[in-house]
Nucleic acid binder design. Structure first.
Length: 230
DNA sequence: CTATGATCATGA
DNA sequence: TCATGATCATAG
Protein backbone atom coordinates (compact mmCIF):
# COMPACT_ATOMS: atom_id res chain seq x y z
CA UNK A 1 0.00 0.00 0.00
CA UNK A 2 2.76 2.43 0.89
CA UNK A 3 4.62 4.03 -1.96
CA UNK A 4 7.99 5.34 -0.87
CA UNK A 5 9.35 5.82 -4.34
CA UNK A 6 8.25 9.41 -4.63
CA UNK A 7 10.06 10.80 -1.60
CA UNK A 8 12.38 9.68 1.14
CA UNK A 9 11.02 9.55 4.67
CA UNK A 10 11.60 12.84 6.43
CA UNK A 11 14.38 12.62 8.95
CA UNK A 12 13.69 13.97 12.39
CA UNK A 13 16.34 16.22 13.86
CA UNK A 14 16.33 16.89 17.58
CA UNK A 15 17.02 20.36 18.97
CA UNK A 16 20.70 20.97 19.75
CA UNK A 17 21.53 20.79 23.47
CA UNK A 18 23.97 23.67 23.38
CA UNK A 19 25.24 26.50 21.23
CA UNK A 20 28.37 24.44 20.65
CA UNK A 21 26.38 21.54 19.29
CA UNK A 22 24.43 23.93 17.07
CA UNK A 23 27.65 25.35 15.65
CA UNK A 24 28.98 21.86 14.96
CA UNK A 25 25.83 21.12 12.96
CA UNK A 26 26.39 24.37 11.06
CA UNK A 27 29.92 23.25 10.27
CA UNK A 28 28.51 20.10 8.74
CA UNK A 29 26.11 22.09 6.58
CA UNK A 30 28.75 24.54 5.36
CA UNK A 31 29.94 23.61 1.90
CA UNK A 32 26.84 21.63 1.05
CA UNK A 33 24.25 22.65 -1.50
CA UNK A 34 20.59 23.21 -0.76
CA UNK A 35 19.86 20.22 -2.98
CA UNK A 36 22.12 17.92 -0.95
CA UNK A 37 20.56 19.02 2.31
CA UNK A 38 17.04 18.67 0.93
CA UNK A 39 17.78 15.15 -0.30
CA UNK A 40 19.17 14.10 3.08
CA UNK A 41 16.03 15.41 4.75
CA UNK A 42 13.61 14.00 2.20
CA UNK A 43 12.42 17.46 1.22
CA UNK A 44 11.55 18.32 -2.38
CA UNK A 45 13.16 21.34 -4.03
CA UNK A 46 10.88 23.85 -5.77
CA UNK A 47 11.84 25.21 -9.20
CA UNK A 48 12.39 28.68 -7.78
CA UNK A 49 11.46 30.79 -4.76
CA UNK A 50 8.77 32.92 -6.37
CA UNK A 51 6.03 31.02 -4.60
CA UNK A 52 8.24 29.53 -1.90
CA UNK A 53 9.95 32.55 -0.41
CA UNK A 54 10.55 30.99 2.97
CA UNK A 55 11.77 27.64 1.65
CA UNK A 56 15.48 28.10 2.33
CA UNK A 57 14.85 29.32 5.87
CA UNK A 58 12.47 26.47 6.61
CA UNK A 59 14.86 23.87 5.18
CA UNK A 60 17.73 25.06 7.36
CA UNK A 61 15.52 25.16 10.42
CA UNK A 62 14.70 21.50 9.88
CA UNK A 63 18.34 20.64 9.20
CA UNK A 64 19.53 22.32 12.39
CA UNK A 65 16.73 21.09 14.63
CA UNK A 66 14.91 24.36 15.32
CA UNK A 67 11.91 23.70 17.52
CA UNK A 68 9.92 26.92 17.74
CA UNK A 69 7.65 26.18 14.81
CA UNK A 70 5.60 29.25 13.98
CA UNK A 71 5.40 30.36 17.58
CA UNK A 72 6.58 33.81 18.61
CA UNK A 73 9.75 32.46 20.20
CA UNK A 74 13.41 32.13 19.21
CA UNK A 75 13.97 29.29 16.74
CA UNK A 76 16.01 27.38 19.30
CA UNK A 77 13.80 27.94 22.31
CA UNK A 78 16.03 26.43 25.00
CA UNK A 79 19.10 28.25 23.72
CA UNK A 80 17.39 31.59 23.09
CA UNK A 81 18.87 31.67 19.61
CA UNK A 82 17.16 33.11 16.53
CA UNK A 83 18.22 31.79 13.11
CA UNK A 84 18.36 33.98 10.01
CA UNK A 85 19.49 33.04 6.55
CA UNK A 86 21.64 35.70 4.89
CA UNK A 87 21.13 35.65 1.10
CA UNK A 88 24.35 36.53 -0.74
CA UNK A 89 24.77 37.98 -4.22
CA UNK A 90 27.53 37.14 -6.72
CA UNK A 91 29.92 39.44 -4.86
CA UNK A 92 29.33 37.59 -1.61
CA UNK A 93 27.43 40.52 -0.14
CA UNK A 94 23.92 40.55 1.37
CA UNK A 95 21.37 40.60 -1.45
CA UNK A 96 18.28 41.41 0.57
CA UNK A 97 17.36 43.15 3.79
CA UNK A 98 16.55 40.98 6.80
CA UNK A 99 13.06 40.86 8.24
CA UNK A 100 13.00 41.16 12.02
CA UNK A 101 9.41 41.45 13.27
CA UNK A 102 6.19 43.33 12.75
CA UNK A 103 5.67 46.88 13.96
CA UNK A 104 3.22 46.91 16.82
CA UNK A 105 2.44 49.04 19.80
CA UNK A 106 0.49 46.39 21.61
CA UNK A 107 1.81 44.85 24.80
CA UNK A 108 2.63 47.30 27.54
CA UNK A 109 6.20 46.92 28.68
CA UNK A 110 7.46 46.78 25.12
CA UNK A 111 7.67 50.51 24.75
CA UNK A 112 11.32 50.74 25.70
CA UNK A 113 14.19 49.57 23.53
CA UNK A 114 15.36 47.20 26.25
CA UNK A 115 12.04 45.37 26.26
CA UNK A 116 11.28 45.73 22.56
CA UNK A 117 10.47 42.86 20.28
CA UNK A 118 13.25 43.96 17.92
CA UNK A 119 15.91 43.82 20.62
CA UNK A 120 14.75 40.47 21.94
CA UNK A 121 14.79 39.04 18.41
CA UNK A 122 18.30 40.31 17.79
CA UNK A 123 19.75 39.42 21.19
CA UNK A 124 21.38 36.29 19.79
CA UNK A 125 21.25 35.45 16.10
CA UNK A 126 22.67 32.53 14.16
CA UNK A 127 23.45 33.93 10.71
CA UNK A 128 23.54 31.33 7.94
CA UNK A 129 24.96 32.68 4.66
CA UNK A 130 23.46 31.14 1.52
CA UNK A 131 24.12 31.80 -2.15
CA UNK A 132 21.07 33.60 -3.52
CA UNK A 133 21.97 34.72 -7.04
CA UNK A 134 18.98 33.70 -9.12
CA UNK A 135 21.24 32.63 -11.98
CA UNK A 136 22.20 29.65 -9.79
CA UNK A 137 19.58 26.88 -9.74
CA UNK A 138 18.08 26.62 -6.27
CA UNK A 139 19.37 23.10 -5.62
CA UNK A 140 22.94 24.09 -6.58
CA UNK A 141 23.29 27.00 -4.19
CA UNK A 142 25.92 26.54 -1.49
CA UNK A 143 25.62 27.12 2.24
CA UNK A 144 28.41 29.07 3.90
CA UNK A 145 29.80 28.90 7.42
CA UNK A 146 27.24 30.16 9.90
CA UNK A 147 28.19 32.17 12.97
CA UNK A 148 26.60 33.24 16.21
CA UNK A 149 26.21 36.96 16.74
CA UNK A 150 25.28 39.24 19.59
CA UNK A 151 25.09 43.01 19.04
CA UNK A 152 28.15 44.96 20.15
CA UNK A 153 27.56 47.99 22.36
CA UNK A 154 28.04 50.22 19.33
CA UNK A 155 25.64 48.25 17.14
CA UNK A 156 23.07 48.16 19.92
CA UNK A 157 23.22 51.92 20.33
CA UNK A 158 22.59 52.59 16.65
CA UNK A 159 19.75 50.09 16.57
CA UNK A 160 18.28 51.70 19.68
CA UNK A 161 18.52 55.14 18.09
CA UNK A 162 16.75 53.96 14.94
CA UNK A 163 14.11 52.09 16.89
CA UNK A 164 13.33 55.03 19.16
CA UNK A 165 13.00 57.49 16.28
CA UNK A 166 10.78 55.14 14.30
CA UNK A 167 8.64 54.16 17.27
CA UNK A 168 8.17 57.80 18.25
CA UNK A 169 6.45 58.32 14.92
CA UNK A 170 4.41 55.14 15.27
CA UNK A 171 3.15 56.25 18.67
CA UNK A 172 2.22 59.64 17.21
CA UNK A 173 0.02 57.89 14.69
CA UNK A 174 2.36 58.45 11.77
CA UNK A 175 3.00 54.80 10.95
CA UNK A 176 1.20 55.14 7.63
CA UNK A 177 3.53 57.97 6.67
CA UNK A 178 6.72 56.13 7.59
CA UNK A 179 8.90 55.32 4.62
CA UNK A 180 11.65 52.73 4.15
CA UNK A 181 14.12 55.57 3.65
CA UNK A 182 14.26 56.32 7.36
CA UNK A 183 16.64 54.65 9.78
CA UNK A 184 20.36 53.94 9.51
CA UNK A 185 20.34 50.19 10.26
CA UNK A 186 16.65 49.56 10.91
CA UNK A 187 13.89 50.47 8.49
CA UNK A 188 10.13 50.01 8.39
CA UNK A 189 8.54 48.50 5.30
CA UNK A 190 5.25 46.80 4.40
CA UNK A 191 4.89 43.26 5.67
CA UNK A 192 1.75 41.46 4.57
CA UNK A 193 0.26 39.00 2.13
CA UNK A 194 -0.75 42.00 0.00
CA UNK A 195 -1.51 45.71 0.29
CA UNK A 196 -5.20 45.19 1.01
CA UNK A 197 -4.47 43.58 4.36
CA UNK A 198 -5.43 45.88 7.19
CA UNK A 199 -4.44 45.74 10.82
CA UNK A 200 -5.30 47.93 13.75
CA UNK A 201 -3.06 50.89 14.28
CA UNK A 202 -3.24 54.29 15.89
CA UNK A 203 -4.15 57.46 14.06
CA UNK A 204 -2.62 60.83 14.81
CA UNK A 205 -5.53 61.61 17.11
CA UNK A 206 -4.83 58.51 19.14
CA UNK A 207 -7.80 56.68 17.72
CA UNK A 208 -7.73 53.14 16.41
CA UNK A 209 -7.83 52.89 12.66
CA UNK A 210 -7.07 50.33 9.99
CA UNK A 211 -3.64 50.56 8.39
CA UNK A 212 -1.38 48.38 6.27
CA UNK A 213 0.77 46.23 8.55
CA UNK A 214 4.49 46.96 8.47
CA UNK A 215 7.61 45.31 9.77
CA UNK A 216 11.13 46.11 10.93
CA UNK A 217 13.95 45.13 8.58
CA UNK A 218 17.74 45.28 8.90
CA UNK A 219 19.35 47.09 5.99
CA UNK A 220 22.04 45.32 3.98
CA UNK A 221 24.56 48.01 5.02
CA UNK A 222 24.21 46.56 8.50
CA UNK A 223 24.32 42.85 7.69
CA UNK A 224 27.27 43.59 5.39
CA UNK A 225 29.19 44.76 8.46
CA UNK A 226 28.28 41.58 10.28
CA UNK A 227 29.70 39.55 7.40
CA UNK A 228 32.97 41.46 7.49
CA UNK A 229 33.46 41.28 11.23
CA UNK A 230 32.08 37.82 11.74
C1' DC B 1 -6.41 38.25 11.25
C1' DT B 2 -1.20 37.24 13.15
C1' DA B 3 2.63 34.56 13.58
C1' DT B 4 6.46 32.02 11.04
C1' DG B 5 9.83 32.05 6.81
C1' DA B 6 11.46 35.72 3.37
C1' DT B 7 12.08 37.30 -1.93
C1' DC B 8 9.87 39.56 -5.87
C1' DA B 9 9.19 43.34 -9.08
C1' DT B 10 9.47 47.96 -10.30
C1' DG B 11 10.36 52.81 -10.17
C1' DA B 12 13.89 56.20 -9.65
C1' DT C 1 21.48 48.98 -10.69
C1' DC C 2 19.28 48.65 -6.32
C1' DA C 3 16.32 50.07 -2.57
C1' DT C 4 11.46 50.60 -1.73
C1' DG C 5 7.05 48.97 -1.68
C1' DA C 6 4.46 44.75 -2.72
C1' DT C 7 3.88 40.12 -2.42
C1' DC C 8 3.91 34.57 -1.60
C1' DA C 9 3.07 30.18 1.36
C1' DT C 10 1.44 28.05 5.58
C1' DA C 11 -0.26 27.20 10.37
C1' DG C 12 -3.28 28.44 13.95
Amino acid sequence: MNDNTQSLPKRRIFPPQSAEELLVRCGNLAGKTLGQIATELGVSVPDDLKRHKGWVGNLLEIALGADAGNKAQPDFVALGIEMKTLPLNAQGLPKESTYVCTVSLQQTGEMTWQASWVRRKLAQVLWVPVEAENTIPLAERYIGQAWLWQPTIEQDLVLQHDWEELMDRVVLGQQDELTAKEGEYLQIRPKAAHSRVLAKGVSRVGLTEKINPKGFYLRTVFTKQLLERG
